[in-house]
Design a protein around this nucleic acid. Structure first.
Lengths: 212, 212
DNA sequence: CAAGCCATCTGAACGCTGTCAAGATGAACT
DNA sequence: AGTTCATCTTGACAGCGTTCAGATGGCTTG
């Protein structure tokens, strides 16, 4: 029963003696999170799902958190793709492009709630990583940054201003993404004719606190 | 050692036979969260801290989550006070009042990170409560709502618009509060001359995605 | 004052978790 | 062929949330 099918793919780099367990563990973890939620993600369950003993994962990840981080990185990658796709589809108006990036962010978070939660749950308490570590998962960040420049949110050359604007946008999208899951907003969603419209209105309006 | 001092306060309502255990548990939980973080908050530790057996809490809370919810409610109360204080101190300009509410929100979150985390961690997956349940903890919400009207963010009488603006502001503050904990922003903080300035700049700028 | 009720608390148990140390296994290199 | 070494297993430990049967003792009723 535990003996699985994919014993001989033989083309990938397989530095182990039972197959590519590391990848299998990540995949198993992702499946569990999606199927049963973050709370049900235990190392033992992952090992079970992958058909190995409870201690096996410790030869590929030093920690439960390290496994979660690996899953989270995949999530950030997907999120980046979603944002890229949205901005590509949004036409040429810089403002519209910006809005659609935000909508894409929130939509990703809302359609992958468990993964999204995990993405931040495991990276929040992290010490600052060497910058290289953050690169892949920050594709989306660069995208937003470019939009900020295009839309003229900060004077050209005002590096700090651009950075602040980008971070602010990321904060805003994250806030909407997290809050949007609260059940209290259901009535508003139907009143606005659907979730997506609700998100879009919210994102356009997150000009809040700006004071003018 | 476990025998504590406060055996005879005798003035409060003490409907139990060993003192006001319910309140003691909440207080113990809060202390543990503040001292050791959310991750270290276990029901058994709370019971230990309160000097009772591990099963005792179950006569006052049906769940670990129910205890956490009680602690969280205290947090929302404190947050409301902080926001109220900030708006009172902010003078009469509506825009400035709004900004200072936002700053107060983020400052509360950043100076009570563990409690803030708990506040949302335990209420996120909640079904919609009867509205009365949310009242106390939503004092702050009403505050923001009023500011939105004062600042003319939505046409007077446009109930949906006001609601959206308020929610958007809450989202923005929450986003900033959560993101601000990431270690990557340290350099920016010093460059702006301190955390508080960083938060203020961010909050003023969370107009992102508005498209104009 | 005595009897009994019942909320409150305890003790022990169950199955689950993360993690570790020691040993078995087998692919790859000498 | 023999050795090495990463990989995987077995078994164990402490701690967790939760439940249940029973002890405790303040309150109400007679």
């Amino acid at each position: 029963m535990a003996k699985d099918v994919k014993t001989k793919t033989a083309c990938e780099p397989r530095p182990y003696h039972h197959g590519d367990l590391r990848r299998a563990l990540i995949e198993a973890a992702r499946e569990i999170v999606v199927r049963d939620g973050v709370q049900s993600l235990s190392l033992r369950a992952v090992a079970r799902e992958a058909g190995v003993s409870p201690a096996a994962p410790y030869h590929h990840f030093k920690d439960k958190q390290e496994l979660m981080l690996a899953v989270g990185r995949l999530g950030f990658e997907d999120l980046g793709f979603a944002m890229k796709a949205a901005v590509d589809k949004a036409g040429s108006d810089p403002g519209a492009r910006l809005t659609e990036i935000g909508v894409a962010y929130v939509l990703y978070a809302r359609s992958n709630p468990a993964i999204y939660r995990l993405m931040y749950d495991c990276s929040r308490d992290l010490e600052a990583l060497p910058h290289q570590e953050h690169e892949k998962e920050m594709d989306g960040y660069e995208l937003v940054r470019q939009c900020m420049i295009d839309v003229g949110r900060a004077a050209a050359g005002d590096e700090i201003g651009i950075e602040l604007a980008t971070i602010a946008a990321w904060c805003a999208a994250h806030g909407v993404a997290e809050m949007a899951s609260f059940a209290q907003f259901e009535p508003l969603k139907v009143e606005l004719g659907g979730e997506v419209n609700f998100y879009r209105e919210l994102i356009k309006r997150v000009g809040a606190f700006s004071g003018r």
